[in-house]
């Protein structure tokens, strides 16, 4: 007993003990709620599984099914379109607002909070429903256009060409988190660089292109990677506002996955879809990293 106590005492006193014990709740949570479910999902992806009855191993069938499924390719196209349009737009928007809010006045704090607000609530169901009402036939957007002389209200959500854009605008509107990161990066650029540029006769425009932007590239890169991943995983907006309609024109990959997994009872196929999505995101992220050395400045100031 005494010896055991000694050892326990010993273990608790080693360098790493505090760290290990402190992170234990997270580590266990991560293993239980991330790694284990991922393992299960990987297994399901090779199974015929309809959620109600136990899974039956079926090899690569789910993955083969994907290739022949028209809707699968539609959802991939829609998701790429959404991510590749909304993310750059969001970043440009975030950067512009960050530059505007960079100068500190008394109101800056309030403005920053206000512009950040949409990204905190933007992914929520409540905002999605609000958005649906804004773009309704008798919604505010149509009312405004009609006040400026438009004759007939436009069915933004019912038209295959416009529906995806309501979702893209919603995504762009949630520029807050990128903006905050840009703001902190802007603050780190030494004033001396601008002073030197000014002495050399550069105007504000030239300063932005020659000093600000190059020094921001690493931040832009970080934002781009993070937002791309988010863009590919977008779900709430489409699920609440359009459910993939009209004619699958807003069928995000994740919504397709949800439908297959939980509505049509193709849960094994849904799991396979999830793993393909993981591969797509990994590939995109890798591609972004591969281009990094071409345009990202990582030197010091």
């Amino acid at each position: 007993m005494g010896k055991k106590k000694q050892t326990l005492h010993h273990i608790l006193n080693t360098e790493s003990a505090a760290g290990v014990i402190c992170t234990l709740p997270f580590t266990i949570g991560f293993l239980l709620f991330m790694i284990v479910p991922m393992g299960i999902s990987l297994y399901y992806s090779f199974c015929d599984y309809n959620i109600l009855t136990p899974p039956v191993f079926s090899g690569l069938k789910n993955f083969q099914k994907m290739i022949h499924e028209e809707v699968f390719w539609t959802s991939v196209k829609v998701t790429f379109k959404f991510a590749f349009i909304s993310v750059p737009l969001r970043l440009v928007f975030a950067l512009i607002v960050a530059l505007l809010l960079f100068r500190s006045t008394k109101m800056t704090g309030i403005y920053r909070a206000m512009y950040y607000l949409p990204s905190m609530i933007g992914g929520s169901v409540a905002v999605a429903i609000l958005w649906k009402r804004l773009f309704a036939l008798d919604g505010v957007v149509n009312k405004i256009f009609m006040a400026f002389g438009m004759k007939e209200p436009i069915s933004w959500l019912g038209n295959t060409k416009t529906a995806i854009w309501t979702l893209i605008i919603l995504a762009v509107w949630q520029f807050g988190s990128s903006m905050l990161i840009f703001l902190s990066a802007l603050k780190q650029i030494p004033v001396s660089l601008y002073e030197a540029a000014e002495i050399d006769g550069a105007n504000k425009w030239q300063q932005f292109w020659k000093v600000t932007l190059p020094l921001l590239t690493s931040t832009i890169f970080f934002n781009l990677v993070m937002q791309m991943i988010n863009g590919f995983l977008a779900f709430t907006q489409s699920q609440i506002i359009t459910q993939g309609k009209p004619a699958d024109s807003t069928l995000f990959y994740t919504v397709y996955m949800y439908q297959q997994s939980f509505q049509f009872g193709n849960t094994g196929y849904g799991a396979a879809l999830a793993w393909v999505m993981l591969a797509i995101i990994a590939l995109i992220t890798w591609l972004l990293f591969a281009t990094k050395k071409l345009w990202v400045y990582e030197g010091g100031f």
Partner: peptide
């Protein structure tokens, strides 16, 4: 340090 470790441990145990 021992005390801190034990406190953390206690916290972890309660959480778990």
């Amino acid at each position: 340090r021992l005390l801190a470790t034990l406190l953390c441990a206690a916290m972890a145990v309660t959480t778990l």
